[in-house]
């Protein structure tokens, strides 16, 4: 009660205004909010727009001082350079892109094949110390990559996995399995266990019930989970730069980062390569936008 009295006093002056003035004030505030949001959106998106502009500018416009925002000659040369080597043939970057597709794709497939059954088992069965196991699994995902990479580097050197795609695939799969289990467990929890019970009453085994009744219902969830795993592997940089070195094995992130190694930097090429690299991620992220909250928190937070 005391609270509402307090508030009545606080809103006192506003009540003195005529209704029309108040509505105007509300509208003014609303306009202010829209303006504020627009400014924030422009600030957030400007770097991306600038990247797009730079990628289609000719080199002399890229380095123009003061910067040219509108009056520049449009060229697609940088995008051509991303895929085609100066002397014709395939560029090192395009090889790196293919490597990225392979490594991200196979590691995601592996993580999905290992993670989905585990998630189902964790969801359906009473496993000893289930909570502890799940928390342990998630905490492996939080290990600092720079720390993990030291023993992994030594380990790979012993078994000959240094500078090989298989090595990258294995470590990416290991980093995506915890995510897949957590994310998929949420999806499995949403499918009633009664479906399987009913199927088993009809004479199917547990395995068949899973395969024929639950799995089809999980497919959209599996797709969303796999897309996130794909994005994580695609964007990964730390393991890639320490565990691979040769052009034939390197994935796109270290290859693009390698573009700034020399004395002069071709920023137009960097921009074009970054865009080509980022575009699939943005498209994929848009496809799974419904699950974004769960995806970016590694399946821990669900709406």
């Amino acid at each position: 009660m005391a609270v509402s009295v307090d508030e009545a006093v606080a809103t006192g002056p506003a009540r003195d205004r005529t209704p029309s003035a108040r509505r105007l004030g509300g509208r003014g505030r609303s306009v202010l909010e829209v303006v504020l949001l627009t400014v924030l959106a422009v600030v957030m998106l400007f770097p991306v727009l600038w990247m797009i502009e730079t990628s289609i500018k000719e080199n002399r416009d890229v380095y123009a001082i003061p910067a040219k925002f509108f009056n520049f000659t449009v060229t697609m040369d940088h995008f051509k350079d991303v895929f085609v080597a100066p002397g014709g043939g395939r560029s090192a970057l395009s090889v790196a892109f293919l490597n990225s597709v392979l490594v991200a794709g196979v590691s995601t497939a592996l993580a999905t094949v290992l993670g989905v059954p585990a998630a189902w088992a964790y969801s359906r069965f009473s496993v000893k110390a289930k909570k502890d196991q799940l928390f342990f699994i998630l905490s492996t995902r939080f290990m600092p990559p720079v720390v993990v990479v030291i023993p992994i580097f030594l380990m790979y050197r012993q078994v000959g996995l240094i500078d090989s795609k298989l090595g990258l695939i294995l470590i990416y799969a290991a980093f995506n399995v915890p995510f897949t289990i957590w994310m998929m467990k949420g999806f499995v929890d949403e499918v009633p266990a009664e479906y399987e019970d009913a199927a088993m009453l009809d004479g199917y085994t547990r395995m068949q019930a899973f395969w024929r009744f639950t799995l089809p219902l999980l497919l959209p969830g599996i797709a969303a989970t796999a897309v996130f795993a794909l994005i994580f592997s695609w964007n990964e940089f730390v393991f890639a730069i320490f565990l691979t070195s040769s052009d034939g094995v390197r994935t796109a992130p270290p290859a693009i980062a390698g573009l700034i190694g020399g004395t002069t930097v071709d920023w137009g090429l960097v921009a074009a390569a970054s865009l080509v690299f980022a575009l699939p991620v943005l498209i994929f992220a848009y496809l799974v936008r419904k699950h974004l909250v769960a995806g970016v928190t590694l399946g821990a937070v669900r709406r």
Binding site: L40, A41, M44, L45, P47, V48, W50, M51, I231, W234, N235, F237, P253, P254, I256, A257, L259, I260, V270, A271, S274, F277, A278, V281, L282, A285, Y286, R289, L292, V296
Partner: peptide, 17 residues
Amino acid sequence: TLFLVPMMLSPVVVGLF
């Protein structure tokens, strides 16, 4: 959707740019 774009980019792309 527009505000979410930076988050989906690789740190490499963000850093370079």
